[in-house]
Design a protein around this nucleic acid. Structure first.
Lengths: 180, 180, 180, 180
DNA sequence: TATGAATGAGTATTCATTCAT
DNA sequence: GATGAATGAATACTCATTCAT
């Protein structure tokens, strides 16, 4: 890929991320192109449909999250990594990222079919953390990874419903995951 | 109101309820009219804007919920009514009702300004149940009614994310509401 | 015709006159029905199309004008009646009656084919006045009645364009009709 | 601007001019698009609202008129330019141009707020001509430029009411503007 | 390759007119 | 006869996607 093409692609991705984060899927492609300083055709050259663009943005995002999460597992006690990770997802990302909330929290978009591999990596990480926490005795043993993911979706919804108390309420829910 | 008009109004409301429940606010009015077997003008006669129709659907729905909830408070121990009610909301209604989930759980629509009085009645009921549960010692004392509503939104999201385990997961979250 | 039917007809005509006068042809029939306190069907019973209603209103109006004009010819010197009549049309009626201005002043509606007989009576009156004025030596001899009618349309347009000076400007134009 | 875009823009403007001239503001945008042989979206790309299109048409038109008028002031005696200009407006343009008549003559559209600068230039020209004529002693001294504009509206109405004698009748009215 | 112009199907809403009650 | 409910064609405007330049 030519250098300018790569630059354009990156720029579009960045702008699309911000646009989706702010306004959700409703942003017109033309608007994204405008903000990126390219023609609409250029967006379509790199991402043949709007869904493809959305997919790329979300994939990008989730890959970052997975990387961050992996890093976490090294600096944090095994029993706490899951909780620290979930908390940070909800409070740091959920607060500013409508697009991500949509992706992880349902809202009509099916991430599993959209980005199966990245989703897989994400679930892998979550699963590892869950297993570690269960092994450490901090997480309930009757939950599996898809349960945790669903509860994460719930936390995003809570964060959206009452942002000002998201921290406290997230803790209430996460408490439900801990061993009695 | 004339009998045929009332019949049409009811039919439109019913169809709109199903349509919104299935596809959310995206359904075109023309489609609702078609499914109801009436002209678009008829929908507009009864509900001058799409928002009015949505309002009517949601209001209708929430009023039913409030009535059911009120009934609950009589046949169920004071300390349990809140939990029974929330569980029934999520499992019975949430399972089929995207429109309702949207209304109670966010999704960009502001119920408070859409149907302030009904919302008020709903919160009143929830508040009464919460107070009763707190008095009976079954619910945490550090939560207020808007916390509970936000957590309800979270439960809806969970239900949407993993319907097959909604019952169990809802219980996990509701456990978080209970006293230690 | 039954008494109540006649009453309804008259009421609709009156309301329609006011509505057209204020808002022009844009007023919906439903609105006229509402203001008249009858159903839309009633309006249509008496006036099968909107054009028929408009026709009736204008006809009514012009008949009044003709009657007034006829009365004028008795109390005013023969040489002045034409000028007094035109002035009164423009200043009294034009100022408050968009529907009439539309009818007499063009604006896409063809009065001649709409109400040929009444138009005929109006032209008859105007013609009589013109002839009288020409005979009295106050009006130019090189004008015929359709010229005067066209100039009246012009005066209505002037009145609409600059209402605050309509009186003075109408006089400027009417001066053009007088013998040098 | 790209050549094809410019061509389309010009074609739309031309077609819109004809359409508005013939049928007034009532022509649907879709119809204009169809007649221009482009999609509706193309019209909207160049003129984001119907008002914008109308504005462009009228502005275009009036700018031509002003240019023509300015040219006139050079080849015609100062005392006559005003009369020559008004006569040419009414007879040449008014005869085929309902849209223009609407713009200059009222019809519910407010040119002053639509194209304030062009309107200003038009009034400037008219004012210059009026002053020159008054100085030359050919025009009445008790008229200002807005009077002349209103009278022009009147002439358009006359032209519409009786096209076949527009020339003679316009002269009758213009005579009213002349001294003594 | 990049551009941005063109496309055209889709959507909420209005209103003259018809027709069941 | 009266009512007002139902109809459905019409209309301005949007936006994902394609394609000429």
């Amino acid at each position: 890929m030519r250098a300018d093409a790569a630059r354009n692609r990156a720029r579009v991705l960045e702008v699309a991320y911000e646009a989706f984060a702010t306004d959700g899927l409703a942003v017109p492609i033309d608007e994204i192109a405008r903000r990126a300083g390219v023609g609409a055709g250029t967006v379509y050259r790199h991402f043949p449909t709007k869904t493809d663009l959305y997919r790329a943005v979300v994939e990008n995002r989730i890959q970052s999250l997975v990387a961050e999460g992996r890093a976490l597992t090294e600096g944090v006690p095994a029993g706490e990594a899951l909780f620290v990770f979930l908390r940070s997802l909800v409070l740091q990302w959920g607060a500013t990222d409508r697009g991500l909330k949509g992706a992880l929290g349902g809202e009509g978009v099916d991430v599993e079919s959209l980005i199966p591999e990245t989703e897989e990596a994400f679930l892998q990480l979550l699963g590892d953390m869950l297993k570690a926490a269960q092994k450490a005795g901090t997480a309930r043993r009757d939950l599996d990874v898809s349960d945790v993911k669903a509860i994460l979706a719930g936390c995003f919804a809570i964060q959206e419903a009452k942002p000002q108390d998201a921290e406290r309420l997230t803790e209430v829910v996460l408490d439900g995951l801990r061993t009695g």
